[in-house]
Design a binder for these strands. Structure first.
Length: 837
RNA sequence: GCGCCCGUAGCCCAACAGGCAGAGGCACCAGGUUUAGGUCCUGGCCAGUGCGAGUUCGACUCUCGCCGGGCGCACCA
């Protein structure tokens, strides 16, 4: 920047002005003008067709960084394109402003989390404005504002009324560092998604959203999203939901009223069941164990509880378990089989109990081998099979085994048939039924933290759980700060007795508020709906306006939310639809996942010392050049290595484009039809292609096309049609409009120099005369044996026969054929002729 | 272990639906301009598409197998 200034000092300001524009001065000039014109305010009453452009709202930690710069630059290309194409565009922005970093900062600095949060929000707000993204700031929201979280609480209570929010005791994921529980989605490879600490299990009573009620629909709708959502997100969600089909089977236990029910995807292997395994941390195991085995069982359970998730999930360690001392009855053979407890069965999947079929399941095989339990194969293995358990296709064998008496016989049946026959038998006998299971668990939403939405529930000894009355919402957080917020295993709110101790709204007796707060993913599960009517007072959003704006036409953001935010937001949308408040089934019609900005082949990090400061880059090259660099770097989904990029080169290009606007001498409104036809064709082609590129998210190619147009226009001015040709004006105006999607400042400056009023952002997409897109002649290639031997200039509508005749008459072709007999001629008019000799 | 994606000039990246491998940029070189090793203008340089097969008149593009890189899932019965 300072370099720019010193370069302008020389004797002739005129000359300096002609060579380069002052990046900072241009930014300072236009920012207040845009502020005044407010060109991106979405009008709820506009008759124009709507577009809703959404980008993931940030968490306010410090100032904006390169990642924010990339995602918003890409997003803004689309939003600004839609404005230019004449849509009414809603492009809102806000902050996901509850969360742990603010709380940690508050403890460290002995202050209130709001101090950190709102200071950062202001910083980011100012940065966003200067960065020139076309946000409609009139819709700004913060999830930590009581006006916002009032409705988060309202939604929680409505969900609860529908049976979709409930409390249960269960072993939950616990982050020992953050001192809070985590949802399954927030545990990555056995570690806390946020801080990386190894997650352990704890038995706690917590609030859950019953997202599993929507498992099937969440899965089914992915088919509709497949064409417009990134494949990896769709796949990730399918895997996460994890639907499987199988059966529930009851194994009777002598002396116990209830049988042990298992879930299996392979009911056809039931004859190979030589033992049962129950999750060691389940209530079922505790209930089944005999007095004689209790001591051993409890010792084993203690050992397991001390393990971290990482240890527990390791697949290569030996199987462990303890015999519970009871036996169960195989419903098809009547055989008595031992029941064991183990940690390789999960308490919260299926029924927490599994029939052990070592012949068909590798885990069971290992367990049987370890414990000396019998192994029976029930599926014929292929010739030469040398593995252990076999779970492939093959006819059923030993079902029943010779000499075993059973009312069911599935020997010889293929796997699918055997499954069907077994389920039919079990259903008829009343000892089982076909069943579907999902990997997806209910969403644990309680958090033992302060800086979040208080759960609006009061616990009364007499009345139980009582909802905070709607007219008392928002239930605001008590004022806590600094050391009050230190993690102590229970929510900091629990210690705020003034706040916690209340009269029961129902009976008036002494009661306590629920002291947990909600997972911040609850806040972000509906913010895109609030944007439709951000000041609405009668509900979380105005259903009429949601009807107008929803769904979001594009959602741009990071792929790290593939199964977190994106799944939760879909769930909320479906529930709100079922509540009659929304008409859409899905919130986001299409999606774009940008890559990340790295440096020197590595993720930017403090420890590597390879961080790139957005502020420094903006100061050195200006907003436009940084935005252009990010958009031009490559396909949006790809990571950008900043070390490979050249923001200086981007700035040079922008200077070249800008210079065009000073060279144009024809008047505003000069009839383009009188202009140079060759340049007009290039302009038309560029505008046409640019639209296509944007709509297929190939923004880097769009920029390359604009560069070509700039080059062509330069040539026309210097050595062609000349600066007064109307086609030069037409081309330069097109450059300004196209550049307005990426480099708003220089585009505005060009627009003014071309004699127009601001703002170029709303100038409208250039008109393209379709006649200019039709080539007057094309080059046809003549190949001999697939090698190019000649080129012909031909009419675009030349016939196959005509082209073939011309090709074979061409001297170069005749020479190449060299008298050999022509065996075959392939003609693809007007582009190609291939002669086979 | 299973699944998905990607390998094109020194570097970042293009190539519609199989049909001329290069659109654009960076870097580099040369000439012009210049007080100028900068800016600007002009021109140049640079790969036969990771490897090996197959299909085809024709393969960067389709199929199969390797090699290399990335991502996702992973004791879910």
């Amino acid at each position: 920047m300072s370099e720019q200034d010193t370069q302008q000092a020389p004797e002739s300001p005129q000359q300096a002005e002609a060579a380069a524009y002052d990046v900072r001065a241009v930014q300072d000039k236009w920012l207040p003008v845009w502020e005044r014109l407010d060109p991106f305010r979405a009008d709820d009453d506009s008759p124009r067709e709507k577009k809703y452009a959404l980008t993931m709202f940030p968490y306010p930690s410090g100032d904006l960084h390169m990642g924010h710069a990339e995602v918003t630059a890409l997003h803004d290309v689309i939003a600004r394109y839609w404005w230019q194409r004449g849509y009414e565009v809603m492009n809102p922005m806000g902050w996901d402003s509850f969360g742990l970093p603010a709380e940690n900062a508050a403890i460290k600095n002995d202050e209130h989390p709001a101090t950190y949060t709102y200071a950062n929000i202001e910083t980011q707000y100012e940065s966003f404005k200067r960065y020139g993204i076309s946000f409609d700031w009139s819709r700004r929201l913060h999830t930590s504002d009581p006006e916002y979280y009032r409705w988060t609480q309202w939604l929680f209570l409505k969900f609860r009324e529908r049976g979709l929010a409930y409390r249960k005791s269960s072993p939950v994921n616990w982050c020992p560092n953050d001192q809070t529980v985590l949802a399954n989605e927030q545990v990555v490879d056995g570690r806390c998604e946020r801080c990386g600490a190894e997650v352990t299990k704890r038995e706690l009573t917590q609030w859950y959203f019953k997202i599993t009620d929507y498992a099937q629909e969440l899965l089914d709708c992915l088919d509709d999203l497949e064409p417009t959502w990134p494949a990896r997100v769709v796949t990730a969600q399918r895997n996460w939901i994890g639907r499987s089909e199988g059966a529930h089977v009851d194994f009777a236990v002598e002396g116990r009223a209830d049988p042990i029910t298992v879930y299996t995807t392979r009911p056809d292997t039931i004859f190979g069941t030589t033992f049962m395994v129950v999750a060691v941390d389940s209530a079922l195991a505790d209930d089944l164990v005999t007095d004689g085995q209790r001591a051993a069982f409890e010792a084993y359970r203690e050992e397991i509880r001390k393990e971290t998730e990482i240890e527990r999930l390791a697949t290569d360690r030996p199987k462990t378990g303890v015999d519970l001392g009871v036996t169960a009855t195989n419903p098809v053979t009547g055989a008595q089989i031992p029941v064991w407890a183990t940690d390789y069965v999960l308490a919260d999947y299926g029924t927490g109990a599994v029939m052990g079929v070592p012949g068909g399941d590798q885990r069971d095989w290992e367990f049987a081998t370890e414990m000396g339990l019998p192994i029976v194969r029930t599926t014929q293995t292929p010739d030469g099979f040398e593995g252990e358990a076999f779970h492939g296709e093959g006819p059923a064998i030993n079902s029943p085994a010779p000499g075993v008496d059973s009312p069911l016989d599935i020997n010889g049946l293929a796997v699918d048939e055997a499954k069907r026959a077994t389920i039919a038998f079990l259903e008829q006998q009343g000892s089982g039924e076909g069943a579907v299971n999902f990997r997806l668990r209910d969403w644990l939403l309680s958090r033992q933290r302060y800086w979040g939405v208080p759960i609006p529930i009061i616990h009364c000894d007499a009345c139980g759980e009582v909802a905070v009355p709607y007219d008392q919402l928002p239930l605001e957080l008590p004022e806590l700060r600094g050391a009050d917020l230190k993690p102590k295993g229970v929510s900091p709110l629990a210690a705020a007795s003034d706040w916690v101790d209340v009269a029961c709204p129902t009976c008036g007796g002494p009661a306590k508020r629920d002291s947990d707060t909600m997972d911040t993913f609850v806040d972000s599960s509906w913010y895109f709906l609030r944007f439709c009517s951000p000041r609405y007072e009668d509900g979380p959003f105005d259903p009429e306006l949601a009807k107008k704006w929803m769904p979001a036409d594009i959602y741009v953001g990071g792929v790290e939310h593939a199964v977190l935010h994106l799944l939760y937001a879909r769930f909320f949308t479906k529930v709100l639809r079922d509540m009659g408040m929304l008409e859409v089934d899905e919130p986001f019609a299409s999606q774009l996942n940008q890559g990340i900005v790295i440096n020197q082949g590595r993720k930017m990090s403090k420890s590597l010392g390879n961080g790139v400061s957005l502020g420094d880059q903006l100061a050195e090259f200006g907003v436009d050049a940084v935005r252009l660099t990010l958009v031009f770097a490559g396909p949006p989904e790809d990571d950008i290595d900043w070390a490979d990029m050249s923001p200086a080169g981007s700035l040079r290009f922008l200077q070249r484009a800008w210079r065009l606007s000073g060279d144009v001498t024809s008047p505003v409104g000069a009839a383009p039809a009188d202009g140079d036809i060759a340049l007009r064709r290039v302009t038309a082609r560029t505008v046409h292609d640019a639209a296509e590129m944007i709509e297929s998210y190939r923004f880097n190619v769009m920029v390359a096309r604009v560069m070509e147009l700039v080059n062509a226009t330069r040539k026309a001015i210097d050595s062609g049609a000349g600066p007064d040709d109307p086609a030069v004006r037409e081309a330069t105006e097109a450059v300004a409009v196209l550049l307005s999607l990426v480099a708003p400042y220089v585009a505005e400056e060009m627009w003014e120099r071309l004699g127009h009023e601001p703002t170029v952002a709303r100038a409208g997409w250039p008109e393209v005369d379709p006649a200019l897109l039709v080539e007057e002649s094309v080059t046809a290639v003549v190949q001999i044996q697939g090698k190019v031997r000649a080129r012909l200039d031909v009419a675009p509508d030349i016939s196959d026969a005509n082209l073939e005749q011309q090709a074979l008459a061409d001297p170069a072709v005749v020479r190449a054929i060299d008298g050999r007999p022509v065996r075959k001629v392939i003609v693809r008019a007007p582009k190609l002729v291939n002669v086979v000799v």
